[in-house]
Amino acid sequence: MTLATIGFYILSMIAIIAAVVTVTSRNLLYAVLALAVASLAVAGLMLTLSAEFLAFVVILVYVGAVVVIGVFAVMLTGQFKKPTLPPSNELKILGAGVAAALTGILIGVVLVQPIAPVSAAHTVSVQQIGRLLLTEYVLPFELVSVLLLAALVGAIVIARGKEAQ
């Protein structure tokens, strides 16, 4: 057991437990904070994959932006006072069944499908990512920039309400 292997199992456990708390917690604030824990654990998993840049992007965007926006939404809608409504019972069983079936099918496919054995671990440096983003992937990069701008403007227009206009 190397350090990376031990780290993988611990971080996977943390991520899965935090994900369960995120989707089942009756208190919405706990769910948002559990998402932060899950994001940190996934960032750690990315570190074990030598994807340092991506790990810090995940921490920055998820813990730094998504979770903070989530906390603001919880506060602004007053959801922290009462626990969230429980899901209806038949939907709970059906939803769990469908999700478990899909998970089982996907895991089965992964286990059956032969994956090419790895000759060596491949790491991508930040320099390579930057160069690829501005050469080979420049079109999706620009599109995603426009998407971000549209989301920024859209979020402000939607959330500010009538009285501010």
Binding site: A19, V23, V42, L91, G95, V98, T103
Partner: peptide
């Protein structure tokens, strides 16, 4: 992780 969050998408009301 995907399956767990799929369950959340199916069952969450909020």
């Amino acid at each position: 992780l995907f399956g767990i969050s799929l369950y959340g998408v199916f069952t969450r009301r909020n």
